[in-house]
Design a protein around this nucleic acid. Sequence first.
DNA 1: ACAGAAAAATAGCCCGAACCCAAAATTAGG
DNA 2: CCTAATTTTGGGTTCGGGCTATTTTTCTGT
Lengths: 211, 211
Amino acid sequence: MGAMTAGLRELKKRQTRQMISDTATRLFMERGFEAVTIAEIATAAQVAKMTVTNYFPRKEDLALDYHETITTALARTVADRPTGESALTALRRAYLAAVERHDPVVGFSSPEFARMLADSPTLTARLRELHDQREEALADALTTATAPTPEDPTPRAAAALLTAAHRTLFHHVQTLTRAGRPDEEIATTATRSAEKVFDLLEPSLGGYAVR
Amino acid sequence: MGAMTAGLRELKKRQTRQMISDTATRLFMERGFEAVTIAEIATAAQVAKMTVTNYFPRKEDLALDYHETITTALARTVADRPTGESALTALRRAYLAAVERHDPVVGFSSPEFARMLADSPTLTARLRELHDQREEALADALTTATAPTPEDPTPRAAAALLTAAHRTLFHHVQTLTRAGRPDEEIATTATRSAEKVFDLLEPSLGGYAVR
DNA sequence: ACAGAAAAATAGCCCGAACCCAAAATTAGG
DNA sequence: CCTAATTTTGGGTTCGGGCTATTTTTCTGT
């Protein structure tokens, strides 16, 4: 059961999964998400249709395979923040660092991938769902961090505001990516925007959830 | 083309549409959104399957027939705010008024309807989409209201924060509704929560978009 | 080393939503 | 009353999602 077992079974599973995901992403970027059928992916990956839906229950998962990272990143940032730091400052720090390393989690990708996302209603819907789960996770983290009374709406509200900031900046990066701007320029712009957005929230949340 | 023409054709169209929508909503609340097929709705409404999908291109539209109201309400509130009032204050005022009249737009509904929404992934996804369109519309309204430079992220960020507040409160009301609380009690709680949430945003956005 | 257990991959099926088209029924206007 | 426009209908397809029984591959204990 452990992740250490380099058993042949585990290995082949990983290979098969990766093969299917790569094939699917390639086809999606070539012809658009909706235009590619699961059957085509299966054929291209030399695998049965059922195997595809076995590894990826929903078609969207074939294109967005890093959901775990997206949903848990903010909550972990808050949970791991150093003493004396507010949730807002921690998230600002984490965002700027992610921009600097051109992290996909804040929206960096190839222009083709960004266009594929924007062109597909299914994928944008799934992205919204991921943002929502991220908000939920962050709300939980803030609740444990501030131990409020049960009916206090502040943790949920703060989580909504903070993820809203991240979401706005994510869309900004994606828009610039679709416009074909180089990652370096996008990083500069995103940094400036982030300063503005986090500064905007500072008076409201600067003193909230300080460890 | 005018809405005044009480032509027989228009009349029958309205009747048919209403009949289908009512039948669908009844079936959805009885057995859940996903468990009811379009064919069943058609049979129950004594109409062809194609007629249903003709009036309601997506199945979700059968349950959420007030999308226009939801998506435009915030933008109109901001556009119509009196002189000297900030966007935040206008939205606070509109929200509290909506709560007082138990407006569905802020989440008031029957417990059955609220449960139907929460139990259906399709409907919650659609609701997220509506919230998103609402944010877009509000962002447009704020852009025309503040005339910022093209790359200023503030209007989009402010729109995201303000809709985040509304969305949080919406979910709060729906949760209480599912718990079976009477509308009066929900209204009292929602008012208290709203004060807190809008107060939270006041230091950040109190001076933004003042007409 | 091998047989039996466990797990993964396969083939083939059904169902429902969404979409399309040609034909029939209904209404509006001359 | 008759024709044109529009709505409704019936029948069809495609695709995603789901299921089950069966075969193939990997693992484990003797």
